[in-house]
């Protein structure tokens, strides 16, 4: 079903590119590849820990995890990662096939670009898990987090480059966004793959996103500990 959204986007941008040959350094095929990669990364970066936590708090199921002799947060993470890896397995081959055997999409700028892009995706997965699990931990106070996540997803759609490449946003916003963790989720891995970042920008971006990962992890652990202390469950 997501393919329909992809199709709608392609037709719209095709009509725009008929009039302008190149937008913010992206050719039409590069833009198509960008959106294809975003779709691929979406499966790998998908996080459901907040749903598990919310359900666990609402129905009291979290109690059975908390008494296990392991870190509950890490358990949620590992469950999420294993799920993503299986989903990814079904998408990597078709996407690789589309890139290698058709002229519609472009390959990576270089082997180094491909490897760095993959490294950024892995970093993005941790950032994504920390952010969404943090939202999930809000359930300790509010029980319901669905709409907060929904609202956050809209922000991600825009500022993470899911709906439109960040390079297409006004320069002021771009300058701010490059120091936020959102860009790591979709825009950075896809842009690195397409060779849109200079060496200096790469170093800065990896540094910034690594720092965000550390900060978010620490905030998550702090909030989690506070949340656990105020958790009250009936039954179980």
């Amino acid at each position: 079903m997501r393919a329909l959204g992809f199709l709608i986007m392609i037709f719209l941008w095709k009509a725009v590119y008929v009039q302008s040959g190149d937008i913010a350094g992206f050719t039409f095929t590069e833009l198509l590849t960008y959106f294809l990669l975003v779709e691929l990364f979406r499966h790998f970066l998908s996080v459901s820990t907040y749903e598990d936590i919310q359900e666990g708090v609402r129905e009291g199921k979290i109690a059975s995890f908390l008494i296990l002799p392991l870190n509950t947060v890490y358990m949620y993470f590992s469950r999420n990662i294993s799920k993503n890896l299986i989903t990814m397995f079904f998408f990597v081959l078709p996407v690789a096939g589309l890139i290698m055997f058709t002229d519609i999409f472009v390959g990576p700028a270089s082997w180094a670009a491909l490897l760095l892009s993959l490294a950024m995706v892995v970093l993005a997965l941790f950032i994504s898990m920390f952010i969404y699990t943090l939202f999930g931990a809000i359930a300790f106070w509010t029980v319901e987090t669905g709409n907060i996540i929904w609202a956050f997803n809209f922000i991600v759609m825009f500022f993470a480059g899911k709906m439109i490449p960040v390079q297409f946003l006004p320069e002021v916003i771009q300058n701010v966004m490059q120091y936020t963790p959102f860009v790591a989720l979709f825009n950075l891995p896809a842009s690195i793959y397409l060779g849109k970042l200079t060496q200096a920008e790469l170093i800065i971006q990896f540094g910034v996103q690594f720092a965000w990962a550390v900060v978010l992890y620490m905030v998550l652990m702090f909030v989690w500990q506070r949340g656990i202390k105020r958790l009250e469950l009936v039954g179980g």
Binding site: S20, A24, F154, F168
Partner: peptide, 27 residues
Amino acid sequence: LLGLITSFVYGLMNLIFFWLVFEAGGV
């Protein structure tokens, strides 16, 4: 309340998206 706001934000985001398509595309 959050549902109302989110739905409102969705509409707003779409309007900004169209504006960006015209602006970025220079059309």
